[in-house]
Design a protein around this nucleic acid. Sequence first.
DNA 1: GTGCAGATGCGCT
DNA 2: GCGCATCTGCACT
Length: 201
Amino acid sequence: MSGLDLAFYGRDTLEVAPDLLGKVLVRVVAGRRLTGRIVEVEAYKGPVDKGAHSYNYRRTPRTRTMFGPPGHAYVYLVYGMHHCLNAVTEPEGEPCAILIRAVEPLEGRETMARFRYGKDWDDLTASQRRNMTNGPGKVCQAFSITREWNGVPLDREEFHIAPGGLEPGERVLRSRRIGIDYAEEAVDFLWRFTLEEEEEA
DNA sequence: GTGCAGATGCGCT
DNA sequence: GCGCATCTGCACT
């Protein structure tokens, strides 16, 4: 067992989402330890959320994982080429999850640079470094997370989320979610949570 | 820094 | 067959 107790995820998605900020995504691949501090997430509450794959409890082969127990990874392919990592939340039967949208690289940058750009970290441009893991597809590419990990509990040595929290001077900001313009009233839900620096007085 | 087009494959109607 | 919980590269301000 590694990382957070899976009971952490078995609560209301809108409580878990901000609690994930500052925590650390951990992945071990090819003997390399990759870690990143979570700085942006989005909540998806299937029962009431037209932006969610599982809206109105829609059960399909794809959404099956979201109905499962909390603390499991929900990984899917979007736009034919990018993977997205979510953590399943709420009790089994409630199809909810939190999308990990961005992390700040901590350990294993060399390996992340290889997975993202096929180059050494030292050979990257400033913008490539800034864009290493600042989007859901980028996080999955940098951490080598594919659909093989769909449905896997987030308590594996090689794949889990470790404790962490806010630093002094940081705060949580809420905003509208990205890429769900079709979701009618749900486009206005403030279900995106980002970690920001406190404004100067 | 912003804005657009195109890539790409699967899930679902 | 349509539409994505996206990213990149290139144009331009």
